[in-house]
Design a protein around this nucleic acid. Structure first.
Lengths: 178, 178
DNA sequence: CCACCTTATGCAACTAGTTGCAAAAGGTGG
DNA sequence: CCACCTTTTGCAACTAGTTGCATAAGGTGG
């Protein structure tokens, strides 16, 4: 139950239409909570029905017409509540690790190429994050909001670093296999 | 579509009943692909219907009766195919990072305690993995299967290490916040 | 001036995972 | 000897996320 809260956060940062939200979910927020436009439109409808957000009254809400939303006080209150509430971390679920485990039983034929491909993907993602860090968090930018957002980006960078290192290690092991 | 393959892997490692599988999914395989017993029973039914596994014919399959399954050649072939097939890594989706981002907008009240709790949980998990590493992978145990399984465990250890370090860093930042 | 492309919105059906509950079989203690 | 507990299996309903497609408005080039 996090998508509505992701949307509330995004709308508080800046009121937006469905499509604008979709764009912003393709980067930024989407780096740790991805969503398709269908999910977003559906959720916007629900949030409006529940009275947590409302359409900005600027233009008539016809089809093919931009419709922007803003967060209402109830919405902000709900986000505040949710943010502070304890939540258990969800157990890991990773396909590549499962495949590696399977390959111990049915053989490693073919998986190495995909390990290599994943390494490239994670290296690219890491480079992108580091670019963002350089651009958005130069030394001195350290208001409370900046520090918190930087912390989130750091998690992304460290995670991608972990994956690139682990994948390199895995490929080295493969090279040594009989 | 990974649960059936997780089950095939587990059954190849050792033919089991639904309940035994459930137990094994609570550790080992479950560390990177968790599943509830309901999921497992449903999937066993499907896999049997598709002819990828079959019930061991030992005892009559009455209710409240153990029923063990083994993998058929078609099942092994399917697992081999799936393991070698390229698959994209799924985008990250992490609630804590989302909450941190939200807290930049609605305030950090309350979240610090949960960061501390998560740190403890991840420290505990890390200790458990390291225990397993010491027990199951002493120096010298390095057949191909051992190496592959060790690699998977290493990913778990490194991931938990990442989380503990990041959470400690986050808590330090919080201590400095106005 | 209209066929077609892009932008923006949205419905419907499907897949995967979770939650809650129940029922059959066998053992156990009062 | 039977009421109750544990083990093992499973159904049903619900929630979240994905995929495929539809539709309306407005601009664009031949």
């Amino acid at each position: 139950m996090s998508l509505p809260h992701a949307i509330l956060t995004a709308l508080l940062e800046k009121p937006s239409s469905g499509l604008e939200l979709t764009r912003r979910f393709d980067k930024s927020i989407g780096y740790f909570w991805s969503a398709t436009h269908q999910q977003i439109y559906r959720e916007l409808g629900k949030l409006e029905a529940e009275g947590l957000i409302r359409a900005l009254p600027a233009q008539q809400p016809a089809r093919g017409q931009k419709k922007s939303y803003e967060v209402l006080p109830t919405g902000r209150a709900e986000l505040t509540r949710w943010t502070a509430a304890a939540q258990d971390p969800k157990p890991l679920r990773d396909v590549m690790l499962l495949r590696l485990r399977a390959s111990a039983v049915v053989g490693t034929e073919g998986i190495e190429a995909d390990l290599r491909r994943h390494l490239e993907l994670h290296e690219r993602q890491l480079a992108e994050y580091e670019e963002i860090e350089k651009r958005d968090f130069p030394p001195g930018k350290d208001s409370t909001e900046d520090r918190l957002r930087h912390l989130v980006l750091r998690a992304g960078i460290d995670l991608e670093t972990f994956w690139t290192q682990w994948l390199r290690h895995a490929l080295e092991e493969f090279a040594e296999l009989p």
